[in-house]
Computed example of a mutant assay.
Amino acid sequence: MKNLVYIALLSLFVYSCGTTGNRNLPSGKDQSAANDTVRIANDSLEYEIIIIEPGFNLFINSYARPRGYHSLSYLENKNKYLVTEYNSRVQQPMRYDPNLYVNEINYDQSVDYGYEVNYLLYNYFVYISRHYNQNFSIPTRI
């Protein structure tokens, strides 16, 4: 009788340690890439911003200042300087990491992109400066 109990427990143990077989388990890599992609588009102005950065959505939802905290003019002024600095780093791959500064940002100061675009762009620069320890030369008073 004892042997029967041991065999049953051993069988249960072996069965529970089996492989997952053909189960469709979610892939963490695919989900995180999809969750960390932010796309903003406006066909009438013909612009599109795609931010693919691991952890950016978490930053926006948890650590960034809430929408409405900064005024639109504040965000536009900061973005003007930040985009200029970022684009200069893109053009200097020997000095700055070309894996971090990949593409130039075409930010036309005469175009009204609206609050959401300026908010996300500004917070993208805040995220880069914090996550990758990058120091952008931002004037304190604009």
Rank of each mutant, 00 (worst) to 15 (best):
V83P: 02
I51C: 05
H131A: 14
R95K: 15
V117I: 13
V126P: 00
L9Q: 08
V14H: 00
V102N: 06
N79R: 02
T19D: 13
V5D: 05
R67E: 13
Y132L: 07
D30I: 07
Y113D: 04
F13K: 01
Y6L: 13
R39E: 12
T19V: 09
F125Q: 02
D112Q: 11
N99D: 15
D36Q: 02
R130H: 06
N123Y: 10
I138H: 01
N22T: 05
R23I: 07
Y122D: 08
R89K: 11
D97V: 06
G68A: 11
T19E: 13
Y132V: 00
Y47L: 03
E85M: 08
T84E: 15
I128T: 09
L10Q: 07
V111N: 06
E53W: 01
I128D: 01
G21T: 03
E76Q: 15
T20P: 00
E76L: 06
R141Q: 07
E76H: 08
Y74D: 03
N123A: 05
T140N: 07
L58N: 14
F125L: 06
D112G: 04
V126Y: 00
Y101S: 04
L12P: 00
Y96P: 02
F136N: 04
L120M: 12
R141C: 02
R130L: 14
R141P: 00
D108W: 05
N61S: 13
Y107T: 03
E104K: 14
S71D: 08
K78N: 06
V126A: 10
G68S: 11
P26C: 03
I142E: 10
Q91R: 09
P93S: 03
K80N: 07
Y69V: 02
V111Y: 05
G55F: 06
Q31D: 08
V83D: 09
S62E: 13
I138G: 00
D108N: 15
I105T: 05
S44N: 12
P26K: 03
Y6Q: 11
